[in-house]
C-alpha cells in the first residue's frame, strides 16, 4: 500500500517545499521509493531545491493529455534514483488542473511508489483544494509564530472535514534560546493549541539556505547539521521507526540554561 501525504501549511514561506525536498531524499535514501509532486504550479520551486530545474521536459498536464507517458515526465534524481519529481504543471499552462486530474495523476504514482509527497501551495483556495483532493494523510508545517499557527489551525479544520488521516505536525524554524527565554511559543504551546501529534521539530539553521543555494537538500549527503538530522528523523518516523523528539529549549546544560528551565516551571 502506498502512502500519499500532503505537505501544507496555510501561511506561505514556512518551509513546506524545503521539507518536501529533504523528506523525499531522506525516504529514498532509507530505501522507500518516493515521488514528490509539485502541486504549486503557479510558483514552481521544488525542482530548484532538488537541483532538477534543468531536467524538466514534461509535466503532469502532458501525461493527462496523453501526449507523453508517465515515465517520460518523471525526473529521476541522479544521485538518489529512488526519488522522482513530477511537476503538476507549468505557469504557462492553458488549462488549470482540477481535483479529478490530481486524483488521476496520484493514482498512477501510487502504482509505482511507496511514498507520494505532495508539495501544496500556500493558502486555502483552489491550489490547496486540488492538492488535498488526492491526499490521504497530511503533514502540517508551521513555525512558532502566531500568524503561522492561526493559519495552520484553519488548514487543519479543512483537512478534518475531508477525512484526511492522520494529520501530523512539523514545527519549523525553532530557536531554542528564544524558547528557553519564553520569547517564542513553546513546543507544547503549539502542539496543545493545534492538538496534533508532533512528527518533527526543525531548528532554524543557516545550512538550509546554503543547501538551497546548491540545489542539494541537506539529507542528500547525510548532513549532520541540526536541520539535516531533523529531516532524516521525520523520514524515519514516517517509516515507522521510533525516534524520540527532544525539546531543544530543555536540552542544553549550564547555569543559564538551568535558570531558564526553572523559570519555565509551571506553577499553576
Amino acid at each position: 500500500m502506498s502512502r500519499t501525504i500532503l505537505i501544507c501549511s496555510g501561511k506561505g514561506g514556512v518551509g513546506k517545499t524545503t521539507l518536501t525536498a529533504n523528506l523525499g531524499i531522506a525516504l529514498a535514501r532509507q530505501g522507500s521509493s518516493t515521488a514528490v509532486l509539485d502541486a504549486d504550479f503557479g510558483l514552481r520551486n521544488l525542482d530548484l531545491l532538488l537541483g532538477l530545474e534543468n531536467r524538466i521536459v514534461y509535466t503532469a498536464q502532458e501525461v493527462l493529455a496523453e501526449s507523453c507517458r508517465l515515465e517520460q515526465a518523471l525526473v529521476k534524481h541522479k544521485q538518489e534514483p529512488n526519488l522522482s519529481l513530477l511537476p503538476a504543471g507549468n505557469p504557462r499552462m492553458l488549462e488549470w488542473l482540477t481535483p479529478d486530474d490530481m486524483q488521476k495523476i496520484v493514482g498512477m504514482l501510487e502504482e509505482r511508489f511507496e511514498f507520494v509527497l505532495i508539495d501544496c501551495p500556500a493558502g486555502i483556495e483552489d491550489g490547496f483544494k486540488n492538492a488535498a483532493a488526492a491526499s490521504r494523510e497530511a503533514i502540517v508545517v508551521t513555525t512558532p509564530e502566531v500568524s503561522a499557527v492561526r493559519d495552520a489551525d484553519r488548514v487543519i479544520g479543512l483537512l478534518q472535514t475531508r477525512d484526511i488521516q492522520p494529520i501530523q505536525l512539523v514545527l519549523n524554524r525553532v530557536r531554542p534560546k528564544m524558547m528557553a527565554n519564553q520569547e517564542m511559543l513553546a513546543v507544547s504551546d503549539v502542539t496543545d493549541i493545534l492538538a496534533l501529534p508532533l512528527l518533527g521539530l526543525v531548528l532554524e539553521d543557516e545550512q538550509v539556505i546554503v543547501s538551497t543555494n546548491r540545489g542539494e537538500p541537506l539529507t542528500l549527503n547525510g548532513s549532520r547539521s541540526p536541520a539535516g538530522l531533523a529531516y532524516a528523523n521525520v523520514a524515519r518516523r514516517l517509516r515507522g521507526e521510533e525516534v524520540p523528539i527532544v525539546d531543544p529549549s530543555k536540552e542544553s546544560q549550564g547555569f543559564r540554561a538551568r535558570f531558564s528551565r526553572l523559570m519555565q516551571t509551571k506553577i499553576f
Binding site: E145, V146, V149, R150, M179, N181, Q182, E183, M184, L185, A186, D189, I193
Partner: peptide, 11 residues
C-alpha cells in the same frame, strides 16, 4: 513574557 502573550492571544 511575549510567549505568554502570544499563547493567550492565539487561544
Amino acid at each position: 513574557a511575549s510567549a505568554t502573550t502570544a499563547r493567550q492571544r492565539l487561544q
